[in-house]
């Protein structure tokens, strides 16, 4: 395999558990995927699906001591992050892989100017004169389309709108030119028109820098808008994965199908949306077989007894896979 088509990030059998008063449970289980430069991967799921935990597990940032990553490999440019010490990981975080969280309010420190926060992020990884780091901070703000960055570096977070703050968080994330950014619901707190601007910005940045993006969301609209690949997670596991277009055209897992059908669209009026009965299972009471089986209209005996393995998705695309016993029949 030549260097050029080696994936930036390759995750194999990621396994994260969380200890609670009721015992220890899998929050992320058998999660594998690959991500190439310039690609955007969406991870879609509901609360408790493990989508956010997957993001945190990649960076070794799961909430300790309750949660811990207990298995799998996370290869970033061929290096396994799981075998690195905490000190080595700190060198990787921010410089090679960084993260944008949902709420810009909590990502920024209210006591410092945004210029200072950018400088701090840069200083962790770069040895350079203060003057040139300052220039790079301003450059990062310019990249995220903050107007008049020379003046805005002196602003405090409370002087900015939510959308602007999220841009600053983005500027911090890209300041050290990482290879991968994990964005966990970064637009959930933004207004519709501001969200559209932000998604456009991320796309532009990607085109300019060849950044790979992991976009964690509950919203299929965002996936349709900016992702090329998709993982659908349910109760800690991947139920379906593949290119976005193939999954939207031929959703193969009953959960994906039902979920896609149940989202109302702005493009046309539907008389009645189909809905999925029941609710996602609690972590401490996962079904023995397929985790969606209790809510699935197609479930049969074997679905309740054992977890299904991979099979090809209905699109026939080589990267489209689905974890369903009845994938071929339905």
């Amino acid at each position: 395999m030549s260097d050029s088509n080696r994936p930036v990030l390759e995750v194999e059998n990621l396994h994260t558990v969380i200890a609670t008063q009721r015992g220890t449970f899998d929050v992320v289980d058998q999660v594998s995927f690959r991500l190439e430069a310039g690609e955007t991967l969406g991870i879609v799921g509901e609360s408790g699906s493990g989508k956010s935990m997957t993001g945190l597990s990649l960076l070794g940032l799961v909430p300790k001591p309750a949660a811990s990553v207990v298995g799998g490999r996370v290869l970033l440019d061929g290096e396994d992050l799981r075998s690195k010490s905490e000190a080595e990981l700190r060198q990787v975080r921010g410089r090679k892989i960084s993260m944008i969280l949902q709420d810009p309010q909590t990502s920024l420190n209210p006591a410092f100017t945004i210029g200072n926060q950018l400088l701090e992020a840069l200083q962790v990884h770069e040895r350079d004169s203060r003057q040139s780091l300052r220039q790079r901070a301003i450059q990062a703000l310019r990249q995220v389309r903050v107007a008049a960055p020379e003046r805005r570096v002196h602003d405090y977070p409370h002087q900015m709108s939510g959308g602007m703050k999220q841009r600053v968080v983005g500027a911090i994330a890209i300041s050290c030119a990482p290879r991968v950014i994990i964005a966990d619901e970064p637009t959930t707190s933004l207004d519709v028109t501001i969200q559209a601007q932000y998604l456009k910005l991320l796309e532009d940045l990607q085109r300019e820098t060849g950044l790979a993006l992991i976009f964690i969301t509950h919203d299929f609209g965002i996936v349709a808008r900016i992702c090329q690949h998709l993982l659908v997670m349910y109760a800690g596991r991947i139920v379906e994965a593949g290119p976005v277009r193939e999954i939207f055209n031929r959703p193969s897992h009953p959960y994906t199908r039902a979920l896609l059908a149940s989202v109302p669209t702005v493009e046309r009026k539907v008389d009645r949306l189909p809905s999925i009965e029941g609710q996602p299972p609690p972590l401490h009471d996962l079904p023995k077989g397929c985790r969606f089986a209790p809510r699935c209209g197609f479930a049969e005996t074997r679905c309740h007894e054992a977890y299904p393995g991979h099979s090809a998705g209905r699109s026939g695309h080589p990267r489209h896979i689905v974890n369903c016993w009845r994938a071929e029949e339905i």
Partner: peptide, 13 residues
Amino acid sequence: MPPPAGGVARGSG
């Protein structure tokens, strides 16, 4: 390196 799954539960109280 990673603790065995069983080792985690001990701290659960």
